[in-house]
Simulated assay, not measured.
Amino acid sequence: MGGTGSFFYAGAVTSDPSSARLHVVTGKGGTGKTTVAAALALALAADGRSVLLVETEGRQGIAQLFDTPPLPYEERRVAVARGGGEVKALAIDVEEALLDYLDMFYNLRRAGRALRKMGAIDFATAIAPGLRDVLITGKIKEAVTRRHDGRQVYDAVVVDAPPTGRITRFLGVTGEMSQLARSGPIKTQSDGVMAVLRSPQTAVHLVTILEDMPVQETADAIAELTAAGLPIGSVVVNMAAEPVLPDEDLARAAAGELTGADLTPALAGAQLPGGAELADALAAEVVEHARRWAAQDALRAEVDALGRPTVELPLLPGPVDLGCLFELAGRLEEHLDAAEVAA
């Protein structure tokens, strides 16, 4: 899963997900973006790679998925991937990120601690919400560019980012900061962050499900990200259900041409009780399934029309556990390998 290159669609540059090093995962609430981010981290860590999975919203969703204690503001290993790769996770704490920032550029960590005791940091981030995003994206950039003994510390960084309605603002706020600061450390840091976010090494992946609102939000987010010059990776269709009937039978049922009378002989042959009443109930269930599938298929066509590399992940039964994450990671590995070949 190495390689370089970009996909080009509708005049916009789209990052090749197989060559990006920073993977930003967003999606409408309820689409499973945290699960997808965790599975993507496992996929990228295969074959001995080192990956950092970053949580930005303080929900400790990553800790729950990997069944670990709540994550502190330090990088901790949460999983070993196929081939001995390693996934570490970090839950960004805004106050600690600000202390890092003050120490890195102004040597003011001690003063920052005093401000925290006074409640000044909470006050600052409350009256200037954009400051929170500046600090988070700054920490992400530091992890992406960090080197040790001349080598990148992480082969990839995966970010469980804010939802689609806020993603363009989240990624672009540091650029606004750069325009306000004409010189000095803030200007330098802001320019450095945006240089990473707008480069081919970044890919913003959008998670959706086959429902009207998530698909529309995905399309809107792609338009906003493109206008902001931010590189788009793949669209991940999550929790995609498989049809339980052949295409011909699905089409017939969706058209309302299936009735209980069509099922009665089979039920009688199987010696199932219930007779015509059971047959009518089963027929109604089949028609509902077929029409739901037809509606999803129409939305699948809308996703395809977005012109982005797309991967579907299946709807898995029961709660998501580590086994489920590895199953989804396998699907994403195949997608990354296919993207590398295409590039």
Rank of each mutant, 00 (worst) to 15 (best):
L225G: 05
T264Q: 10
E95C: 15
F8A: 12
L102Q: 05
G184H: 04
G2P: 13
T56K: 01
L52H: 00
T14C: 15
T26D: 04
Y106S: 14
G3I: 08
D47I: 09
G119K: 01
P185Q: 03
Q189N: 06
G192D: 05
G61I: 01
D304W: 14
F7K: 00
L99W: 00
P185M: 05
A46M: 05
A79C: 10
L313Q: 07
A126K: 03
F105W: 04
V341E: 13
A38F: 03
A143T: 05
E334F: 14
E333C: 13
Q60Y: 04
K117G: 13
V134I: 12
S15T: 08
R166D: 14
H335C: 14
H205S: 11
R252M: 08
V13Y: 04
P319Q: 15
G165M: 11
M1I: 10
A284F: 11
P273H: 07
L65N: 03
E142D: 03
D304V: 13
I186T: 05
S50A: 14
D249R: 11
R76M: 01
H148D: 13
V80I: 15
K187C: 02
K139S: 02
L325Q: 00
G11W: 09
S15N: 02
V311P: 05
I140R: 01
S178E: 07
D103F: 11
A10P: 06
H148R: 14
R292A: 11
K88P: 09
